[in-house]
Nucleic acid binder design. Structure first.
Lengths: 135, 135
DNA sequence: GTTTTATTATACCATTTTAGTAGATTATTT
DNA sequence: AAATAATCTACTAAAATGGTATAATAAAAC
């Protein structure tokens, strides 16, 4: 029904990184964003994989934003952690609509159209907000 | 991240009841909406408790819409099943924002304002759609 | 080139939420 | 009284979320 705690943590971590404005190691990020180091590392890996954050190994290693905070949106952050946003499972191609009886729902039903609409509404609103605006 | 299957079932059941246009028993509803009888009963109880459906015991008993389909909204249905819609847990007064470090977030943070906005957006969109429009 | 620092990969466990079930009880109509 | 159908309470199963642990790998410093 709502976004996960992990996504919330992710936002906090990104906000901290943007504030820092330089390369920071995972431990510092986790302490400042109040997320356990281990869990923070897991989230940071997702960020690195999706390309919104760059990671550096070894001494003086750590993480930094891959782009200016003005170019990273809330949608980038949330969807990196959670995947594409869908208001209802029915819309997710992987789970798909589970209605099989044509009397109940043949083809995309009217509720689905509304849910599709809402999903798009949420995604575009998330896209309008940049990390820079959260500082 | 998305509304529950239970809410989807609930919508299907309400759509069926609206189509039927008369009192129907739980078994018939469950079969037509493709939900197990037991689970359907559980959902119907919530509908009856919230007042969007009237229930009748005994022979010739069953369920019927408490109001015309034009006066029941998707929001009524979804929130009866799931409770008030919040995009992020942080907004739910019961769970509450878990950020305690004032350096990270003192008072309502900017992300929360956006989430509040999105929650309201979703709720109002759900409110615009009536059960009648789903038939 | 070895040591140190810090990320990465994989896999696992615990908790919470969601989904679904069961039995006994109560109310209503015939 | 008998039959039907909802209600209450409680329980179990499955899935998703939240969190941990270990070993491996890469980079820089000395």
């Amino acid at each position: 029904m709502h976004i996960t705690l992990e996504a919330d943590y992710g936002i906090r971590m990104m906000v901290y990184m943007a504030r820092a404005g330089k390369r920071v190691d995972a431990k510092t990020i986790s302490e400042n964003a109040e997320v356990t180091l281990r869990f923070a590392l897991k989230i940071l890996r997702k960020f690195a994989a999706s390309g919104i954050v760059k990671s550096f190994k070894g001494m003086q290693g750590g993480y930094e934003l891959a782009k200016p905070a003005e170019e990273i949106t809330l949608k980038d952050i949330v969807e990196t952690v959670e995947g594409t946003y869908y208001f209802s499972r029915c819309l997710n191609p992987e789970s798909g609509c589970n209605r099989t009886n044509p009397d109940v729902c043949h083809g995309p039903c009217k509720a689905q159209a509304v849910f599709d609409d809402i999903s798009e509404l949420v995604r575009s609103r998330l896209e309008q907000v940049t990390l820079a605006q959260l500082l």
